[in-house]
C-alpha cells in the first residue's frame, strides 16, 4: 500500500494569485497535499477550481508576470518555489514531465513527431541523434503506435487525435520522469479512444514507475486509475482520500454533489440528475469561511470560519460536519436535488 513508499512530492500551503484589474485572483489558496513514489493522484474539480494552475506551479511554469506563487513545493527533498529557472529547466522534462489536454495543439506543427521526441531526449541526455532516434522509436512502440518507424517521420497533422496523444505521452516519458502530470489527457479525445489512452498511460507508468498526478473532471477516469483522489473547489482542497474512500464514503457536501451528478449504471434511474445549486464563487471575492458554504445545503453557523482539512487515516475533508451530521445531511441533499 502507498504508506510504505517514499514521499516524492510534498506541497504545503501553496498559493497562486494573479494581479488583475478587478483585484487579486486567488487561483490556488493554501493548497497542501503529498504524493508518494509510483502513486496515482487524481485531482478532480470543476473548471476554475485551480487544478491546472496548481500543477503548473509544480512545474514552475506559472510564467505570467502578474502571478505570485507562495508556499512550499518539495520534490525529492528539494524546494521548488523560488528555485532558479536554470535548475528548474533541467528538472522539467527529466524529473517532472507534463502532458496537456489537447494533443491537436500540443505538438509544434512544423516538426515531425520523431524530431520532437529526439529533441526531448537530447535536451536532457548526451545522446547522439541516431541513438536518440532509436530510443524515440522504442518509445513510440511502447505507447502502442502501429508501425513506429513510419510514424517517426510523420507530422502531427498527419496523425489522428489518439495517435498524437500517444506521441505526446511517449515524449513526456522519454526521460523516465519520476513524476508525470497529466492535465486532462483524454478530455479532447473521442470516447472510444479515451479508454485506450488511459490504458497506455497506466501501462507506461507501471513500466517506468512514475508517479502520476491526473487532473480531470471525469470521475470515471479517477475511479479507473487513481490510488488517491483530491477534490478541489475554489482553489482549495475540499476532500482527499483513497479512491474507495471517496467513492464509498464521501464526506464533503461538494463531493456528494460531484458524485450525484454521475448517472448510476444500475438500479432505478433518477428522474433528473443532481446538480449543485448556484455558481462557483468569484476567485476575487472568496467568502471568509468555507468557500462552498454559499451553495451548501448543510451549512450552519460554523461555516463562516474556514475549515481545515482534517480526518482519519489519510481521509480528510475541509468540512465542519461530523460523522452523525453527514449521515443525516447526505440523503437530504440527494432528495432535495437542487440544494437549498
Amino acid at each position: 500500500m502507498p504508506e510504505s513508499r517514499e514521499l516524492l512530492l510534498s506541497v504545503r500551503e501553496l498559493s497562486v494569485s494573479f494581479r488583475t484589474r478587478s483585484g487579486i485572483v486567488h487561483a490556488v489558496d493554501r493548497l497542501s497535499f503529498d504524493l508518494r513514489q509510483g502513486e496515482v493522484l487524481g485531482v478532480v474539480g470543476e473548471s476554475g477550481s485551480g487544478k491546472s494552475v496548481s500543477m503548473l506551479a509544480v512545474m514552475g511554469l506559472v510564467t505570467d508576470p502578474n502571478a505570485i506563487v507562495q508556499g512550499s513545493i518539495v520534490f525529492r527533498g528539494q524546494e521548488l518555489v523560488g528555485t532558479a529557472e536554470k535548475r528548474m529547466r533541467a528538472m522539467r522534462g527529466r524529473d517532472i514531465a507534463m502532458i496537456f489536454q489537447d494533443p491537436m495543439t500540443a505538438l509544434t506543427p512544423v516538426y515531425t513527431v520523431g524530431w520532437q521526441i529526439v529533441e526531448q531526449i537530447q535536451a536532457h541526455q548526451p545522446l547522439s541523434k541516431k541513438a536518440a532516434r532509436l530510443q524515440a522509436r522504442e518509445l513510440l512502440g511502447a505507447v502502442g503506435m502501429p508501425n513506429p518507424d513510419a510514424q517517426l517521420d510523420r507530422f502531427p497533422h498527419q496523425l489522428s487525435g489518439g495517435m498524437r496523444q500517444r506521441a505526446v505521452i511517449a515524449m513526456a516519458l522519454a526521460c523516465r520522469p519520476a513524476l508525470l502530470i497529466a492535465d486532462e489527457p483524454t478530455t479532447a479525445l473521442d470516447v472510444t479512444v479515451q479508454a485506450q489512452i488511459l490504458e497506455v498511460l497506466d501501462h507506461m507508468r507501471k513500466t517506468i514507475g512514475s508517479a502520476v498526478i491526473l487532473i480531470t473532471h471525469d470521475m470515471g477516469v479517477v475511479a479507473e486509475l487513481a490510488d488517491r483522489v483530491m477534490v478541489m473547489y475554489a482553489g482549495r482542497a475540499a476532500e482527499t482520500g483513497t479512491a474507495s474512500d471517496l467513492f464509498n464514503d464521501p464526506w464533503h457536501p461538494y463531493t456528494w454533489g460531484l458524485l450525484g451528478s454521475i448517472p448510476p449504471l444500475s438500479g432505478p434511474k433518477p428522474r433528473r440528475l443532481l446538480s449543485i445549486a448556484g455558481a462557483p464563487p468569484s476567485l476575487v471575492h472568496l467568502p471568509d469561511g468555507c468557500a462552498f458554504a454559499p451553495r451548501c445545503p448543510s451549512r450552519f453557523e460554523l461555516c463562516s470560519k474556514r475549515p481545515a482539512l482534517s480526518g482519519v487515516l489519510e481521509h480528510d475533508a475541509a468540512c465542519f460536519l461530523d460523522e452523525d451530521a453527514r449521515v443525516l445531511a447526505r440523503p437530504a441533499m440527494a432528495t432535495d436535488g437542487a440544494g437549498p
Binding site: 511554469l61 510564467t63 533541467a90 528538472m91 522539467r92 522534462g93 500540443a106 506543427p109 515524449m171
Partner: peptide, 14 residues
C-alpha cells in the same frame, strides 16, 4: 501564446 510553446517549456528547453 500557442499550446506547443507550453509543451516546449514543459520539455525543459531553453
Amino acid at each position: 501564446q500557442e499550446d506547443y510553446i507550453r509543451t516546449a517549456r514543459a520539455k525543459g528547453l531553453s
